[in-house]
Design a protein around this nucleic acid. Sequence first.
DNA 1: GCGACAG
DNA 2: ATCTTGTCGC
Length: 237
Amino acid sequence: MLPDEAVAVQESLRTRLVIPPPGFAVPPTVVGLDVTYTESSFGVAAAVVIDVATLAVVEAVTAQGEVSFPYVPGLLAFREIPLLREAISRLSATPALLICDGYGLAHPRRFGLASHLGVLLDVPAFGIAKTPYVGAWAPVDEPRGSWSDLVDGDEIVGRAVRTQTGVKPVFVSAGHRIALDDCTSLAVRLSGRYRIPEPTRQADILSRRRLADHLSAGGAEWQHGGHGGQPAAGGSR
DNA sequence: GCGACAG
DNA sequence: ATCTTGTCGC
């Protein structure tokens, strides 16, 4: 698919995007997503189910394979969604809320990865990014839970949110079927003692570990990925 | 035209 | 994203 076609797809899918008023009913569990790559084009996607009350990992699956779409700012979804969908399909239940490593509405065309994935699956989704992309924001107060609007043009597209006192904020934006206010409170509520909230953090850890396993195994024995539950015994640490 | 640019 | 060592601090 060419970049021009990908942009057309985004503008088309965007008509299906739904952002409700605040008041999202927080589910018992949420799903964190991330993809890690090799210097070449091999990727491992991870989907980790996190218990909202305890922040514990209750299920973890992966999917891996060659990735064809290159990284292009604004078109990240086309690179990551194939493996992410495959990983999500391996979960034992349909997710109630997806949390992506990246942006949703805070995107040049208001349709980043979190919006794209949310619309395709018609599941609530939002994004948590580690670095700025679209929009400007005022300095965020120091205490955990403080935030400042991300403003692009005349729109509020997301928020810079302090998940830990004295630590750089993360960037939160709504993806699909959830309001920014709810994304903001969830980002803080889902954060343990780290800057990155547990869902995305655990997905990052798992995808990196699986990629390392894949490489040390010579890339032959684990080609089918997607093991459910806890990591198998024998895995190096 | 030039620089910036999620992961 | 990935390439990479030590170092400061709780």
